[in-house]
Amino acid sequence: MKLDDSDWVNNLFKSTAEDWTPTTARDSAQVLFVPFSDDENTSVHCATVLSNAELVSADTFLNANDKNHFIQRRAFRKYCGARALGSTRALRNIEFYETDKGRPYLSSVRGLWFSFSSCQLGFLGAWSFTHGIGTDIEDQTRNIEATELAHEFFSENEARIVDEATDATRLRTFFNLWSLKESALKSIGEGLPFGLDAFEFDLSPDVHLNHAPVQYGGAGRFQAHLIERDNTCAALVTHLL
């Protein structure tokens, strides 16, 4: 095993990555998805491109599956960084930093936005040179109290949308709205503490924003996209800076 097996990791993600960029966002962003692998060998190779600090963080996980998920997620983040830069340097040398709100960035390139998300099924990475961006992926197979959560965290109109969904579509409706709202927060460099009520979405007749914070230019400076796939709900929100 090499100290930094970047070639193996690059080939893995190159062969398994799926382009999930919405057609209407191709001029402003790139979105990639890779599935989580339960092959222990995959995590062993991915671990070789992580920093010492990341390896220490990986060792704090008590559950082996959670540890492997973290290792693959961080290796994929480095892969996306290299793809965005067009870099052939060793992945171990692609080093991300985070703002105090958790937004990842590369110190070597100003104006390049990244957003990452994951669920048990896989990892989503997005980047843009022209827009603030946020992305989120949710595992739709999870069993949650969608109606109760919608009334707790969503606007009155969004909660009504969840209420009026059929039993067969209620979970997907909830996760679509949740992923849009979390993506929107990331697109302004914020996290959940900023408040899910900062943005309000509608899903009909198409996905659009009803409300966005005035200090970020209002709804007109954002574009929202749902990424429909089996078993997952994912979203991309771009913010014109």
Rank of each mutant, 00 (worst) to 15 (best):
T169A: 15
S6D: 06
F36W: 08
I227C: 09
S108A: 15
E152P: 00
D7I: 13
A90R: 12
A219W: 00
R160D: 07
T130S: 15
S183T: 09
D230G: 04
T99N: 06
H131T: 10
A75L: 08
F175I: 05
H151N: 14
L112Y: 07
E164V: 13
A75Q: 03
S128E: 09
G191T: 11
S187P: 04
A84Q: 05
G111D: 08
E182M: 03
S115N: 09
G218F: 03
L112S: 05
E18G: 05
D100N: 12
T23D: 10
K181A: 00
A84D: 04
T60K: 15
C119K: 00
Y79S: 08
A184F: 01
L236R: 01
A234H: 04
L149R: 06
R172T: 11
D19L: 10
I71H: 00
L112I: 10
D197V: 00
W8K: 14
R26Q: 15
F129D: 14
S128C: 10
D7Y: 09
I227G: 07
D167T: 15
N52K: 14
G220M: 05
H208D: 04
S107N: 13
A126K: 00
G81C: 08
R26N: 09
C46Y: 02
K181C: 01
S43E: 05
F36Y: 14
V237S: 00
P104M: 07
A184H: 00
D38L: 13
L226R: 08
S107Q: 15
T48G: 02
A159D: 02
F194T: 00
A53I: 10
T88P: 00
K2V: 10
F96D: 02
H69L: 11
